[in-house]
Amino acid sequence: MTKISYRACIAILALVCLFLGISPPVRAGEDFSKITQSGILKVAVYNEFAPFSSGDGGIDIDLAEALAKKTGLKLSLLPFPAGDDLDEDLRNMVWKGHYLGYGPADVMLHVPVDPRLMKQNDKVEIFAPYHREVVRLVTDVRKVPQFENLDSIAGKKIGVEKVSISAVVLLGAEDGKFRDDVKIYPTATAALEQLKAGGLDGVVANLSEIESVLRADPNYRISEVTFQRLPPKGWVVGMAVKKSDPELVKLLQDATNALVTSGEMAAIFAKHGVKVLAP
């Protein structure tokens, strides 16, 4: 299973209100004692999830390294393929482990900070929001000289990633008005590379994906677009640990706060061409 299942879940979760305020209790737990005794922090990240985690590295991989350093632990990275839904990912990588033998990790990154997800996963603690993701339209200014609203891309070839929130909102926009012009790609990166090659007029994708591929190229315009079913402020991602690990929650929350305050978090994102958006 690829990261597409994760995208499908995001397409659902991003359509509800998002939750930010978290204040976990603090007390020592058996799991935290095992972590400190081993001196190793096991961090789960998604496979093939550029620009956050892939074979070439990524934001979440660099963040995992920074968290381990801040907490005085050695990093053990656990890349994993997305399951059928986020509940399965949390079960496999946070509180139970996969039946094939890998996992769980001590912490999983890039978990939506979402009240519904929290409610249906009472064995995990979701906390430490570190980025806000938003959907944007990027167009080639040589092919779309001006952009005022979605009508500006009528008849233009627009790429999206399959089974993503971008595909859902664009295909459904204005009663399917743009459906015949939408081109489906296996990943947002593939669509963006096709845009650079001249095969598309624009792409609808997460802003982080757009920024990481186009790197502020002046030939491309990034525009905010309004879709009826898309939250205007996007959705927030953070991390998750077992519910029984409140001391680990405090340790990682403090480390995350330190990375933000020092500017290290922004530097991690900037390394990959992405501007961190505060949750």
Rank of each mutant, 00 (worst) to 15 (best):
M118D: 09
V113W: 00
P279H: 08
G97C: 07
E148C: 02
K34E: 13
V204I: 14
L230E: 07
N92F: 00
I165Q: 12
Y130T: 10
R116W: 10
L137F: 05
T36G: 02
S212V: 04
V260C: 06
S5Y: 12
A68C: 09
V237S: 09
Q194K: 13
Q194Y: 01
P218V: 00
I184M: 09
K162Q: 11
A44S: 13
G55T: 11
K123Y: 04
L15R: 15
E48N: 12
V45N: 07
E133T: 13
D180C: 04
K157Y: 05
V134N: 03
A167E: 15
L251K: 14
I210K: 09
L109I: 10
K275N: 13
V43T: 12
L90V: 11
E209A: 14
D122T: 06
F32T: 14
Q228T: 15
P112A: 06
P145D: 05
V26G: 00
L200W: 11
H110R: 10
L75P: 07
L259V: 01
N257A: 13
T256C: 09
G198E: 01
V225M: 14
A258G: 09
I158S: 07
P115Y: 00
S244P: 03
G83E: 06
V16Y: 09
D89I: 02
M265I: 08
T71A: 15
M239V: 09
Y220N: 00
F178L: 13
M265S: 01
D87M: 06
V107W: 10
Y220T: 06
A44G: 13
L170P: 07
L150F: 08
A173G: 04
T189R: 14
G198L: 07
G202A: 10
K162H: 04
I165T: 15
P51N: 06
V111L: 01
L171W: 01
R7Q: 15
V113N: 01
P231H: 06
A173T: 03
P51C: 08
D201Y: 07
G83R: 11
G198Y: 08
P232G: 03
D56H: 03
V169M: 02
G83F: 02
G199Y: 07
V107M: 12
L20P: 03
M1S: 12
E264R: 10
A173C: 04
S262F: 07
K34S: 13
E211N: 00
G199W: 09
D175M: 12
G198I: 05
F19D: 14
K70F: 01
R142Y: 13
T261W: 03
D89R: 01
L170C: 01
R27G: 07
R91S: 10
E211Y: 02
V203G: 05
L117P: 00
L63A: 10
P232F: 01
G57K: 06
V16H: 11
G21N: 06
L117R: 02
S54N: 12
G57L: 04
H110L: 00
P51K: 04
G198W: 06
F178S: 01
D89V: 03
K119R: 13
